Computed example of a mutant assay.
Amino acid sequence: MAAIKWAVDPMHSEVQFKVKHLMITTVTGYFQTFNVEVETESDDFATASSILFTADVNSINTNNEQRDTHLKSADFFDTDTHGQIKFVGNRYEKLGDDRAKLHGNLTIKGTTKPVTVDVEFGGIVVDPYGQTKAGFTVNGKISRKEFGLTWNAVTEAGSVVVADEIKLLAEIQLVKQA
């Protein structure tokens, strides 16, 4: 049986991250350019043989141009050398009809680490144009320092400016390819 290919519907998907700033508020950022490709044996994503997510770091947007420029610099992502974030999923572990854990390897700034994220499966529907679509909400947390994103500053009172924990959130809609 031929593999079923699924591709991201970028108009109905988003990838964001959240990080504490000064430990009192949260800054949200987005990757505006990203891709998701999945291959399965059936409409059951536990049969996935390939799961690939990439994000163009130069598309980062935190609604602040000065901060975005800093995030692209060598202090953080160093986009001149490491322009892409990559996640290669190696196991979609179903925990019920609508819950799963996705295990894989995340590469940021040349460092690859195993990461597990929580997945809420929204289901599969056929849209008004006859396309079969699958929906997912993905949540996870990583330590930015584990990926070499170590820049920080300290306030006069001794508080750190940027927290280590990064919350990852994504709404992903996949389209079954003909």
Rank of each mutant, 00 (worst) to 15 (best):
T26L: 09
M11H: 13
W6R: 00
E37Q: 13
Q131E: 01
G130I: 00
W151N: 09
G83I: 02
T116S: 07
K72W: 09
D9Y: 01
M1R: 09
V19F: 12
H12I: 08
E65K: 15
Q177H: 02
E165G: 05
A46P: 03
Q84F: 08
L168W: 08
S59Q: 13
F147C: 01
V119M: 03
Q177D: 04
P10F: 13
R67D: 02
E165S: 13
L22K: 02
G135K: 04
K94M: 07
V117S: 00
I4W: 01
N61E: 12
N152A: 10
T107E: 10
D9G: 08
L106N: 05
V161R: 06
L106E: 03
I142R: 10
K86N: 09
V38S: 00
L102Y: 00
V160Y: 06
L95P: 05
Q131Y: 00
G110K: 06
V162T: 14
Q131G: 01
A153P: 10
T28L: 11
G83V: 02
P10C: 12
I166R: 11
N61H: 13
D75H: 13
Q84I: 14
V138T: 12
F136E: 07
L71V: 05
N61W: 14
K145P: 03
M23I: 03
V138Q: 09
T155G: 06
L169Q: 13
T150M: 12
E171C: 11
V57E: 06
I142K: 10
S42N: 02
K113P: 02
N64P: 06
S13V: 12
A48K: 00
I85M: 15
L174I: 04
D56I: 05
K113Q: 11
N58W: 14
N58C: 09
H12L: 07
L169E: 13
D78C: 08
T26S: 12
V117K: 01
T26M: 10
H82E: 02
K72L: 10
T79D: 13
P128I: 03
